[in-house]
């Protein structure tokens, strides 16, 4: 693999309203002193999709999982994550609240071994919503938002594990949306899905930008160029380039980005 100068980068700050930003974020796994993610400073525009791309091991997933403190148990994270004027990467912050505002969907669909409606209501009930009618409403709205309602509306009491992979993943999105988050983090949500399910998912995500800010990690460059407004390119734990998606894919500033998006990488 060609070695690139990792200190050379090009990072813009979007002019739009910013929903979430990180400042000099560093991630250390285990007790090691070597950072898996170095000095990541990015700002994510509100009601847009931002894609994080890069090869395996580039640190994009690590970065994403740090944003709602999912890496707390396994990694040490330094730097600032600014959300609504609060640095949420502080030990004083209530991580449970953070995760209610910043939801997450994972690579592999991971519905609970419960019924479809329970999958959605479980966390709502834990958050103190007990009104039956409101619960039903949230189930319906979130399933509609995730474009799953028509397929499952008659089977809400069936086990979620009986759904297909694509349906399961959309249920996971619905589950996250039911919490009414601000921001939705998606970690390669389509990697376990077939092409048809993937297309459906992309359409759904685009719809969601009406109400949500979305940050998505993807392996698939076409996917990134199809759905995102901004794209960040990660390489070996560094953010190399961050700009409007069009710019990244057509006229990138940095050689490494150019090589990666044109497929001349490694």
């Amino acid at each position: 693999m060609e070695t690139y100068d990792l200190s050379q980068n090009h990072i813009v700050t979007p002019p739009e309203e910013i929903a979430l930003s990180t400042n000099q974020l560093q991630v250390y796994y285990g007790s090691g002193s070597r950072a898996s993610m170095t000095d990541a400073s990015l700002s994510f525009p509100r009601f847009q999709i931002t894609a994080l791309i890069g090869a395996s091991g580039s640190g994009k997933s690590t970065y994403l999982r740090s944003l709602n403190r999912m890496n707390d148990r396994i990694a040490r994270i330094e730097g600032e994550i600014m959300y609504r004027g609060t640095n949420i990467n502080s030990p004083k912050v209530n991580v449970y609240e953070v995760r209610k505002h910043i939801g997450m969907v994972f690579q592999k669909p991971n519905p609970f071994a419960k019924s479809i409606s329970e999958n959605i209501t479980f966390a709502l009930k834990a958050a103190g919503i007990t009104n039956r009618q409101e619960l039903n409403e949230r189930v319906e709205t979130s399933l509609k938002e995730a474009a799953l309602w028509n397929e499952v509306k008659d089977d809400l009491n069936k086990s979620a594990l009986a759904l297909s992979g694509g349906q399961q993943q959309r249920l996971c999105i619905a589950r996250a949306l039911a919490m009414k988050p601000d921001i939705l983090l998606l970690d390669e949500p389509a990697s376990a899905l077939d092409p048809i399910s993937t297309t459906k998912l992309e359409v759904t995500l685009k719809e969601l930008t009406k109400n949500y800010t979305i940050i998505i990690v993807t392996h698939n460059m076409q996917q990134a160029s199809r759905i995102s407004a901004y794209t960040a390119f990660f390489h070996l734990g560094h953010v190399i380039e961050y700009d409007q998606t069009e710019k990244i894919f057509q006229t990138p500033e940095i050689q490494a980005t150019h090589d990666y998006v044109t497929g001349n990488f490694g």
Partner: peptide, 26 residues
């Protein structure tokens, strides 16, 4: 699977709630 634990805490559930409500039944 760990993915069940991740699903729980990513929804803002406490670890304890995740264990009691999701991991134990599974």
């Amino acid at each position: 699977p760990d993915s069940q634990r991740e699903a729980g805490i990513s929804l803002g559930l406490s670890n304890w709630r995740t264990i009691r409500g999701i991991i134990l039944p599974a």
